[in-house]
Write a protein that binds this DNA or RNA. Structure first.
Length: 148
RNA sequence: GCAGAGAGCUGGAUGGCCGUGGGGGCGUAAGCCCGCGAGGAAAGUCCGGACUCCACAAAGCAACGGUGCCGGGUAACGCCCGGCCGGGGAAACCCGAGGGAAAGCGCCACAGAAAACAGACCGCUCUCGCUUGCGAGAGUAAGGGUGAAACGGUGGGGUAAGAGCCCACCGCGCGGCUGGCAACAGCGGCGGCACGGCAAGCCCCACCGGGAGCAAUGCCAAAUAGGGACCGCGUGUGCGCAAGCACAGGAGCGCUUUGCUCCGAGCAGGUCCGGGUUGGCAGCUUGAGGUGUCUGGUAACAGGCACCCUAGAUGAAUGGUCAUUGAACUGGCUUCGGUCGGGGAACAGAAUCCGGCUUAUAGGCUCUCUGCGCGU
């Protein structure tokens, strides 16, 4: 009846981070963007790096080398907890995040990484779409930066 | 035109570009093309079914849950339609858990003398006594006061005062006739009045009802821990060589009766099955299906004919953006006709599928009816 939601337990701190790798950003406009579907992928991402913005939370994780997924892929997942609102509000937030990810991630995401976008109450639906894209680019720069 | 009542519809629109979930086609592939893609409530999960799996010897009884005026509709319903009765309204219409209180139990707060079986607080009348406005006795229940409710009501006669004591009408009860399939209604007769209310407290009566749900269920693949069944040998007493029969015991089928089934202490063995986890496929959308039309019916609805195929996801598709337009609401100007701006669409998102109910819902539209007013 309802899709699975973000678990509301707060397990989202220190995880496996990797040093930043320099990536060439050209000719990636039509790269496929697979969607995360397994609960375990979401749980792994929630234990990795995260960066909040005004209208959403972004989690990012570099996949380990022994994982079977094609290392050239950028994968993305979307989630909204029930705090975001009723089903209409949650679906709307996911659709807007999907649109933002489609515009930004093929060019700015790094191959071999998984990204999870988490919606926020009211803000995800209300914020201008251009601003949301800017938010995501800013957050990706922060996430990709080497840890100090 | 104004006020009101009922029934129904709608739920921003059009186009371009980019994207997305199924389906179809082309292609070795990358990919390209075509077509389809949320609601009236998709919601609450409250009723009723379909469909699956499990359970099920019969009858009676009991328990538990539900329904409750009558007739019809339906696959079925607690739903719908029509009618009856009671209540509200000037009317259109609206509301009602609307069987049984002479089967039984229980309750009826406060107030009041008295709350269910009769009785008498203030009174009223008569008699007696005297201290002359009080006491005693008898009669009475009309009047007063209390209450949601006070042992029929109103009027007249009657009386010491009164009382169905008598009479008329109304109410009530009993039995009859007429109309109606029925609930019930009408009419006239008899009875002087017995039977207060609550069944949404228990209860009685009638009728209905196995359980779980698509995470059902079936299949495939991977992966592994050791649960169960059957076979074989073995099993109380009596009779019997034995097979078996009888008896006793225990267990199960809600209970009873009839009836049936099973069991008995283990094990070196043999054969087979299942369970949880993850992924995939089926179930999965052609159905009590829609639209139009004709026929029957007051209607709910039923039937005939023609045409149509209209989401099938599973971390879950319907989105983003641009242009034109744009309701409510709102600011200014106004010659009250408008005009220039702002603003940017309610409740809400399919999850096996249907029939209902309930709840949420900005605004707009249509039809019918009632009352009043105006015009012709």
């Amino acid at each position: 009846m309802t899709p699975p939601e973000t678990p509301t337990d707060g397990t989202a701190t220190n995880g496996t981070s990797s040093p930043a790798v320099s990536v060439c950003l050209d000719d990636k406009a039509d790269v496929a963007l697979p969607v995360l579907k397994k609960r375990s992928d979401f749980l792994a991402a929630s234990r990795a790096r995260k960066q909040g913005t005004k209208a959403m939370m972004i989690q990012a994780r570099k996949r380990r080398d022994d994982e079977t997924v094609d290392p050239s892929l950028v994968r993305v997942g979307f989630t909204c907890s029930k705090k975001v609102g009723n089903a209409v509000a949650r679906n709307r937030a996911k659709r807007r995040m999907r649109e933002v990810a489609r515009a930004i991630l093929p060019a700015y995401g790094k191959p071999g990484w998984d990204y999870v976008l988490i919606g926020r109450k009211d803000a995800t639906a209300a914020r201008d779409i251009q601003t949301l894209q800017g938010d995501l680019k800013w957050a990706l720069r922060k996430l990709h930066a080497p840890r100090s």
